[in-house]
Design a protein around this nucleic acid. Structure first.
Lengths: 327, 327
DNA sequence: CTGAAAGCGCTAACAA
DNA sequence: TTGTTAGCGCTTTCAG
């Protein structure tokens, strides 16, 4: 591993000169520069970013904390984040906190450690204090740290309203409201959409049945069971509102049970990630603008890194995805 | 940011002693240790890994190069890799090379840069030389660097045979063999499975129609179009072999066109990732053992990091996924 | 057992 | 324009 010292020696110049020539900052005579570049090439020199990082006290790496990658929503979000961060000159360290014993704390330590220049967190599992204690650069997705940490989220309230509107427009009389039990209290998350949906529907005299599922399960069979038991328990339901993980199996379990879902009930999914478009019939629903979320998170993070003032809370629009399962 | 120097000063000890106490290497008197630890706590000291990395010339980070995260197979693989690497004490830097101008080279540079301790590459887009030139630690998934770089892959030949067997057992007479055009010549990849399938089927007198799709497209609509045109062009086909991205839309497009696929034709998917189990009817197919792939890649990489000898080529079994679309 | 000093590879300030 | 020097924060000899 040739160092810049070796290059300088071979080129017959001082250490500083070599550094300036190679890093491109500061004045170097064209001739000298050429000599240095040749020496560098000959020695097959590559700069050691570790040393540079130590000096600048930055690594150019951003930690992205998500529950898991093999989940439609998060894999899309991670994809966008990686891409956006790359464009801004940052590398992405991916940190999946689900399945990992002490993962979140461990990853959070990277900030104190200077291993990452900032963290984008999109998990809900950890206690707030550890985050807030950290004085470094953190931006949160969909999780409210009471103003201590800038947050970006989708307008879950609008999502609930939008869904309610479509159920009502479709003339639904009894809607199954299926959502994951919130593991952390007080955080704004998709739960809000379910609350609003309920309120809106009740006001219009639509019956709402609440079905609580366990959180954080990505097991297909679990959701299939949920779907089956719902279909059995509420044969007269004519509407379903749930996450993609719920609605996709719902659609297919109904088919398997010989129920003509399209005719019998309206399904509205929340998140409307790629699967809901891949399957047939396409599932109608409310979607989060993942690319906009990613861009906003990235921009906010970089502002914070640069010491600029950032907005405390940025709420992004949701959109309606046309499909076959609801008007 | 309190440094170890500050801690030493506050504790009234030498720099080295503080370091030994805090890092746990070397002898320190219990009393002294206590003093140092208290000082560290008081100053809220956290070690700067950047400095440690420079000294040790390692970062504890592994680069994982994949085409994209929002792809069923790769998101699952990335998930497993992150988890396996974490268990071994490494952090994962995720590097998506698709959509990124000069991404692969840029990420590859990280190795030379010392930013990562090793790279697991699962992309097919780049020229081999850049990889082979690099003398550092690389392990490849499903890509043959002619023995220069250890490779892990699935037994695509067995996959082809397995698929053929099932088509034959089901009495198929005309099978559509749908595969992406290989962008890079000579690399072993899923293409091998399609070759073998063709050979095996022909030997048994089964007709095989070859359908070539563009590579690297994750656009649903594109595959829907493919499915439609196949269904129209080959109304008498009774078998389909393709990737998940092909088979899922195929199933649903057929349904949309009012074709009773289950009755009319057998579908065998290759990769059999989670989607193929989520949808109904479940799609039969050949699967790659992603967790085993991940474990093998990780183990091999770590062996290389530790300077141990590694196997040049490790071929892993594929498995049959029972489903409704083929016996 | 402990302190001082050297140095990982690089950049930046200061002279020359 | 260039060379020298002083660190970034840490670990690790090497004396003591």
């Amino acid at each position: 591993m040739a160092s810049i010292k070796d290059v300088a020696k071979l080129a017959g110049v001082g250490l500083g000169t070599a550094s300036r020539a190679l890093s491109g900052n500061g004045y170097v005579a064209p001739e000298t520069r050429k000599k240095i570049e040749e020496a560098a090439k000959e020695l097959d020199y590559t700069p050691n970013v570790l040393a540079r990082n130590l000096l600048k006290n930055r690594s150019g790496i951003i930690g992205v904390l998500i529950p898991s990658l093999d989940h439609y929503f998060f894999s899309e979000l991670a994809q966008r984040l990686e891409s956006d961060l790359y464009k801004k000159g940052y590398k992405t360290m991916i940190c999946c906190t689900r399945n990992q014993e002490n993962g979140e704390q461990d990853y959070l330590d990277m900030l104190e450690n200077n291993l990452v220049d900032g963290i984008i967190t999109a998990t809900h599992s950890f206690n707030d204090e550890a985050y807030i204690k950290s004085k470094r650069v953190i931006v949160s997705f969909d999780r409210d740290f009471k103003g201590e940490i800038p947050m970006v989220s989708s307008d879950h309230e609008a999502a609930g309203k939008m869904a309610a509107e479509h159920f009502i427009k479709s003339g639904c009389k009894k809607v199954l409201n299926i959502y994951g039990r919130d593991t952390v209290g007080g955080h704004i998350s998709t739960g809000k959409a379910h609350q609003v949906l309920k309120k809106e529907l009740k006001e219009k005299g639509v019956l709402v049945e609440e079905i609580c599922t366990e959180m954080g399960i990505s097991d297909t069979e679990y959701y299939e069971k949920i779907a089956r038991s719902c279909l059995e328990a509420y044969p007269d339901a004519d509407g379903v509102f749930g996450s993609d993980s719920v609605c996709v199996p719902f659609l297919f379990q109904a088919a398997e049970m010989g129920i003509d879902v399209l005719d019998k009930m309206k399904i509205i999914t929340y998140d409307a990630t790629a699967v809901t478009r891949t399957v047939y019939p396409k599932i109608s629903g409310v979607g989060q603008k993942i690319d906009e979320i990613s861009r906003t998170l990235t921009d906010t993070l970089i502002k914070k890194i640069n010491g600029e003032k950032t907005e405390e809370k940025q709420v992004l629009d949701v959109f309606w995805q046309d499909g076959e399962t609801c008007l």
